[in-house]
Design a protein around this nucleic acid. Structure first.
Lengths: 202, 202
DNA sequence: GCGTTGCCGAACAGTATGTTCGAAAACACG
DNA sequence: CGTGTTTTCGAACATACTGTTCGGCAACGC
C-alpha cells in the first residue's frame, strides 16, 4: 500500500506537467496550447497525463490553486505581523507583487484577444480570497450585499490588473495597490456599511 | 455589377445564421455549440457559412455588434430627449433593460463554467460605449487615467451584471442601474476629477 | 527481492474545423 | 423574358486535437 503523495514518480510527473504549463503559457498562451505540446515539453506519455488530470483546464486550475496557497501564506504572515485590525483586503499587495515578478506569463495570458481561461481562473481565486477576507473581518451584511461586494472588488481589482499589465506600465506594486484601494474603498462602503475606518479615507 | 448589400440571398443567409446563433446560445451556450449545429438550424450549406464568416467567433462578434448599434440608438435618443448635461453613463439603463428582456440567453452564456466568449465580446462592447460616453462629455484627464477609468467602469458594471443574472434576482432594471451608479460613481471621481455634479451624490 | 503501482507509446475512435469543386438556383439588368 | 453573374448547396477531403485502451516495461515501497 503505497501512499500516493509520497511516490516520487507521481510528484515528478505532476511537477513536470505544471512546469511545462507555465513555460508554454509564456510562449503560446493558454488557448492555442495543445495537450501534445505539454507532453512533448514535459516528456510525459499521453496516457500518463490523463492519469493525473482530466483536461488541460484541470491542469490550469491546479496551477492557479498553487498560486492561491502561496498568496494565502504570505497574507497570513502579513496579518500576523501587523497584529489586529489591519486594513481590509491585505492580500492584494502580495498579489500585485506576484504579477509584477511574472509579467512574462501574464503578458501573454491576460487581456489578449483569445485568452480567457487564465483570467477566469484567476478571478475565481480572487473571489475566494475576497470572501475569506470579509469572513475574517466579520463584515455582516445581507448575503446578497456580500455577494455583490465580492464581485465588485474582484471587478475593480481586475480592471487595475488589466490596466497595469497592458501598456507595459512599470509602476511599482505598492503604487498600484494604493490606486486600487483609493478607487475601490468608497464604492465598497456604499454597498456594505464597511466600518473600515481610516483605511476608507486613506 | 450587383451590390453586395442589396442581394436578397446574402441578407437572408446572414440573418438565418445570426438568428440560429441566438437560438442555439439559449439551448447550448456558446462554447459547446458547433458550426454544424448552426448549419442545421439555419439550413445553410457549410461552404456558404465560410463565405460569410471566418469563424464561429466572427459570427458572435457580428451579433454583438448588432446589439451595440441598437443600444447606441436608444442611447442617442434618450440623450436627445433630456437635452443637455445629463448624468454620465446613460447607456447603462438601456443595457440593463436589454439583459432583463433576454434573460434566457444570458442565463446560459454569462457566469457559466465554460462560457467565456460572450462575456469577452460584451465587455469589449461596453468598453467602447464607455469610451464614447467620456469622449462626448469631454472629460479631460491623462490618457492613462481615462483608460483606467474605462476599465474600472466596465469592471463594476460587469460585477453588477453577474450578480444580477446569477441568483435569478428579479430586480427591475431601473433599481439595478441605481445600485450600479451608487457604487461606481464615487470611485470614478477618485480616478478622474469627474465634475459629474449632482449625479455623483445621487 | 517482490508485489504493487505508475509510466510509456502506439494505435484507435470520435469529433470538429476549414477547404474545394461542380452543378443548380437566385439574382440584376437590359 | 433572356443572359451573364453571383450565391448557394452538399459531399468529399485534408487536417488537427481529444480522450481511451492495452501490453510491456520501469520504478517504487516495504
Amino acid at each position: 500500500m503505497t501512499d500516493l503523495k509520497t511516490d516520487a514518480r507521481v510528484q515528478r510527473t505532476r511537477e513536470l506537467l505544471l512546469d511545462a504549463l507555465v513555460h508554454l503559457l509564456m510562449e503560446r498562451g493558454y488557448e492555442k496550447l495543445t495537450i501534445q505540446n505539454l507532453l512533448d515539453r514535459a516528456r510525459v506519455g499521453r496516457s500518463t497525463f490523463y492519469a493525473h488530470f482530466q483536461s488541460k483546464d484541470e491542469l490550469l486550475a491546479c496551477s492557479i490553486d498553487r498560486l492561491r496557497i502561496g498568496l494565502t501564506a504570505q497574507w497570513r504572515s502579513a496579518v500576523h505581523a501587523n497584529s489586529d485590525r489591519t486594513e481590509p483586503l491585505t492580500f492584494t499587495l502580495p498579489f500585485f507583487r506576484h504579477l509584477d515578478s511574472h509579467r512574462r506569463i501574464y503578458h501573454t495570458t491576460i487581456g489578449r484577444e483569445h485568452e480567457r481561461s487564465v483570467e477566469l481562473h484567476m478571478q475565481r481565486m480572487l473571489r475566494e480570497l475576497v470572501r475569506e477576507d470579509m469572513a475574517q473581518r466579520r463584515v455582516h451584511a445581507p448575503a446578497d450585499a456580500l455577494d455583490l461586494a465580492t464581485r465588485y472588488v474582484v471587478g475593480t481589482l481586475w480592471a487595475v490588473v488589466m490596466w497595469w499589465m497592458d501598456g507595459n506600465k512599470s509602476l511599482p506594486p505598492e503604487e498600484v495597490n494604493r490606486i486600487f484601494q483609493r478607487m475601490t474603498f468608497p464604492g465598497l462602503e456604499a454597498i456594505i456599511g464597511a466600518e473600515s475606518g481610516c483605511a476608507g479615507r486613506l
